[in-house]
Write a protein that binds this DNA or RNA. Structure first.
Length: 411
RNA sequence: CGGGCUGGAGUAUGGUGGCAGUACAUCUGCUUUGGGAGCAGAGAGACUGGGUUCGAUUCCCAGCAGCCCGACCA
């Protein structure tokens, strides 16, 4: 992609109506734009990042046997009355059709999926099944805050697993746990598996927490066995590790994902049952596995940056390489175009700063702000050799070598 | 939902009870090109409603919006 064709501009100064680091950086660098509190447009660079995050998540869900679908965001009132959550869920956005009928904007999808599955599950032979989607969710937060960390409209992956018995459900819980560990590893994000409250559904569940002062959660992280537990559920708020008895430190963290058993709760509401081998009717037992993909983008921006701007992990950076042409001489321009075309032909994802009449300083400053981890410069200085300057973000080292050689080593 | 702060050009901001200024961005022209360039010119702005006043962008009240603190957070 050429920067000259990118309509979304960077800002020289951070926005005055944002305080949180992720919102400031993402808006200033032109990744997102606020429409109203907790409601953001994903601009081209932001959408690239979001898609990369979601594809990493998607890949692991598929590996774990997940089947992807896309449910509606608009939910009829009737579905939510079945579970009593039309009244009980206070963050529910409610809306009316002009032509009759009341709806909710979906904050979660049990009400839709359970009614959907009545048609598809009737025998133990139909189980287990693992269904997920990556979708826009709506929650009427009383106080949206901190940019993408607590939004009214946000992106989320939610997988629901359905089983013939609790044992199989617990088996799959462990599968998901491993998947989540793998996801965060691939995202380049350090997430701490943390024992957490399962709300009304179960005694225990697991959250994946990223240490940050911007976090709303407090967790106890054991210095000896590395077990973590959310302060909410720690016995008497005791920071002593409940696993090994070691000393735990209290840290602030942001919840990136949460996995927990739903058991038979909604199956009971919707009468979602199946016949077992003996022909006996039983309720389906389920698990729920959520991961906020747009929040993950906010978390990365929150925890990975320096004074000059964002620093994306390699796997989620909007592009692999930021190519900058310095100067406007025809020679430089020609060399830049040639290199850009070659890189594209090689399948390299490259953001090419081909903007005319921009000074070197401005281009470098924008590159720093945008935070693609690898940068190449074409200029008068580099024309004599068959090479360009390559620089890893946040590193003073400048190497001169052919870009292809470097990229081969880089992967 | 309670409390606090804020509301002015695309962005950021100074000043002000009396014709609304500056920087960057934008447009025109020329120069410049390895860390947010220079000169000349141009366009572009006070959240809404009420009050005080001869006169309100400025003071007061209300609403709305944004941010922050708290409560809440399937």
């Amino acid at each position: 992609m050429r920067l000259s064709e990118l309509f979304a501009k960077t800002q020289r100064t951070p926005p005055k109506d944002e305080e949180s680091k992720n919102a400031k950086l993402l808006e200033q660098a032109g990744f997102i734009q606020k429409l109203s509190a907790g409601v953001y447009t994903f601009l081209p660079l932001g959408l690239k990042v979001l898609n990369k995050i979601e594809n990493i998540v998607r890949e692991e869900m598929n590996k774990a046997g997940g089947i992807e679908i896309l449910m509606p965001a608009l939910h009829p009132k009737e579905n939510w009355e079945v579970t009593g959550r039309w009244q009980a869920f206070d963050a529910l956005f409610k809306t009316k059709s002009n032509f009759g009928g009341e709806y909710a904007l979906g904050p979660t999808h049990e009400e839709v999926l359970y009614s959907l599955l009545k048609k598809h599950i009737s025998s133990y032979r139909d189980l287990p099944v693992y269904i997920y989607q990556i979708q826009t969710k709506f929650r009427d937060e009383k106080r949206p805050k901190a940019g993408l960390l607590r939004a009214r409209e946000f992106r989320m992956k939610d997988l629901y697993s359905f089983h013939a018995n609790d044992k199989d459900r617990d088996r799959y819980y462990e599968v998901m746990k491993k998947s989540y560990v793998e996801i965060f590893k691939n995202l380049g994000l350090s997430a701490i598996p943390t024992i957490a409250s399962g709300g009304t559904f179960s005694e225990l569940s697991m959250e994946f927490q990223v240490a940050s002062d911007a976090g709303e959660d407090t967790i106890f992280l054991c210095g000896e066995c590395n077990e973590a537990i959310n302060k909410e559920v720690a016995k008497d708020g005791n920071p002593k590790c409940q696993n090994c008895g070691g000393a735990a430190k209290e840290i602030k963290a942001i919840e990136a994902g949460n996995i927990f058993p739903l058991k038979e709760k909604y199956a009971n509401d919707f009468n979602l049952n199946f016949k077992d081998e003996a022909g006996k009717e039983k309720l389906v037992s389920a698990g729920c596995y959520g991961l906020g993909t747009s929040r993950v983008m906010g978390i990365i921006a929150e925890v990975m940056s320096d004074k000059k701007g964002l620093i994306w992990p390699k796997n989620v950076a909007p592009f692999t390489l930021h190519l900058i042409a310095v100067g406007e001489s025809p020679k430089v321009k020609k060399a830049g175009e040639k290199l850009y075309a070659e890189l594209i032909a090689d399948g390299c994802e490259v953001l090419y700063d081909d903007r005319a009449e921009r000074t070197a300083g401005e281009k470098f400053a924008d590159a720093d702000l945008i935070g693609i981890p690898l940068r190449a410069v074409v200029s008068e200085k580099t024309l004599d050799t068959d090479s360009v300057e390559l620089k890893e973000r946040n590193s003073e080292a400048i190497r001169l070598e052919t870009i292809k050689t470097f990229l081969e080593k880089y992967d």
